[in-house]
């Protein structure tokens, strides 16, 4: 219940990551693009000498991510042994969950349903809890289709 959350804004919506999922929040350095990669893959970057894949969360959710400006902070997560840095509109703050996870009444929309576990209350108001594995898995599924 008192779980720590990292609040972020993705495609203009307030979202939350479990703090335990997020290894760190980094300032984006130079991102080397990966030609021919699926469009979710922004490129690769290095954090403390470790290469990681930068993924634009907003492409998983929104049709056109370019309408949302983003800042230079990336949330670093690890899925299946690979490090990813998630690009969001904005990393907001750390907050404590004030409720359990509850489904969003009526669902949160086609794209959102796939990547969020539900909603929960924070002192900043309700936020959608992002399932990072789904974000990456969703991207993987899409990339397989693309390939």
């Amino acid at each position: 219940m008192s779980e720590l959350l990292v609040l972020a804004v993705i495609a203009g919506k307030r979202c939350a990551f479990c703090a335990s999922d997020v290894g760190s929040v980094i300032e984006a350095g130079v991102i080397a693009p990966v030609p021919r990669a699926p469009r979710h893959v922004v490129g690769i970057t290095a954090l403390r000498s470790q290469a990681m894949t930068v993924i634009d969360c907003r492409t998983v959710i929104a049709e056109d991510p370019s309408i949302y400006p983003c800042d230079s902070h990336l949330a670093v997560i690890e899925v299946a042994g690979h490090s990813y840095a998630l690009q969001v509109d904005k990393i907001d703050d750390i907050a404590t969950a004030q409720s359990g996870i509850a489904p969003v009444p009526g669902g949160s929309g086609k794209h959102w349903n796939r990547v969020c576990k539900g909603m929960l209350e924070t002192d900043r108001g309700p936020a959608l809890l992002i399932d990072v594995e789904q974000v990456v898995a969703g991207i993987e599924q899409k990339s397989v289709k693309a390939a």
Binding site: V34, A51, V144
Partner: peptide
């Protein structure tokens, strides 16, 4: 090793960091 999303491009097989710390495919 590269994550599956990049491996699926079929033209890269790994990544490394150059001396200047920049990642390279």
């Amino acid at each position: 090793p590269l994550p599956p999303a990049i491996m699926s491009c079929g033209i890269y097989c790994g990544t490394t960091l150059l001396d200047d710390g920049q990642p390279i495919l």
